[in-house]
Nucleic acid binder design. Structure first.
Length: 257
DNA sequence: ATGTCGGCCTTTGGCCGA
């Protein structure tokens, strides 16, 4: 099973990139983030012509997630269970079941806007996500959580100078919340296979970040224990960052035997 | 490394978010 996640930074700007990428990589399931369109405006029919059923959870202007799959699936949640407050109104979560496995796509709040209240929304999302993972573990479900986590888990996960030490992506409370989820017994697919060194998934549009390889590792796939045993590969597809008019994120692809 | 994007309204330029 080939799973993928990609923050596309507007599906209207990146539809051709996604279509070409699907044809080249042929994932079974692809989660998208930052589609930046309302649900009815998502170009689902164009992806269905390529053999991918598409379901979007959109909103005006910002955020928005979607799933594209060439395998049968059922959408089970379009919002993160248990989450309340302003952040709960935003399109950041989709959960599906396919082949007896639960797959979750997330666009975790960045946390740098809206002051401390905005940052608290990020932490609230992470708490609700941990509780969701705990519930799935208690049910003995096999599951994976893929997406733009907006967390650089360790200092190896961002290039020197690419972030302020006080950025919400690296604040101690952010990292602690990420570890609480990871340490439930989940496996960070990329770090399981590439334990050290830079494995960036994002390069800012500003300051020639791509040319300087000044990147971040903030897109992650976390696997439940039995899925982790099936892990055979996990890597960002850096090639996409060099395309014309790219997203600032590249796809992350995970293979399970 | 505050000369980048994308979306939207305040609408042909300025703002917010990333």
């Amino acid at each position: 099973m080939r799973l993928a996640t990609w923050n596309v930074n507007s599906i209207r700007q990146r539809e051709r990139h996604v279509a070409k990428w699907l044809e080249r990589v042929q994932p079974d399931v692809l989660f998208l983030q930052e589609i930046k369109c309302q649900t009815p405006d998502f170009p689902a029919l164009n992806f269905e012509a390529l053999g991918y059923r598409a379901v979007a959870v959109g909103q005006k202007s910002y955020n928005g997630v979607a799933v594209l799959a060439r395998v049968p699936f059922e959408v089970t949640h379009t919002a993160l269970p248990g989450l309340t407050g302003d952040v709960a109104e935003q399109a950041r979560y989709i959960e599906i079941e396919t082949g007896g496995v639960t797959l979750i796509g997330i666009y975790l709040p960045n946390g740098n806007s809206g002051g401390e209240a905005g940052y608290q929304g990020k932490l609230d999302f992470m708490t609700a996500l941990r509780l969701r993972a705990e519930a799935l573990l208690a049910e003995d479900r096999d599951f994976a959580i893929l997406g733009d986590w907006n967390v650089a888990p360790t200092d190896e996960d961002y290039a020197k100078g690419a972030l302020s030490p006080t950025d919400a992506l690296v604040r101690p409370a952010t990292r602690a919340a990420y570890r609480e989820i990871l340490w439930l017994g989940l496996t960070d697919a990329i770090r399981a296979l590439h334990p050290t060194g830079p494995v960036y998934t994002f390069w800012d549009y500003q300051s020639a970040a791509w040319q300087r390889d000044s990147g971040l590792r903030i897109d992650h796939a976390l696997l439940s224990p039995k899925l982790a045993e099936r892990l055979t590969s996990a890597a960002p597809d850096r090639r996409e960052r060099g395309e014309e008019q790219p997203s600032d994120h590249v796809p992350v692809v995970v293979e399970l035997a």
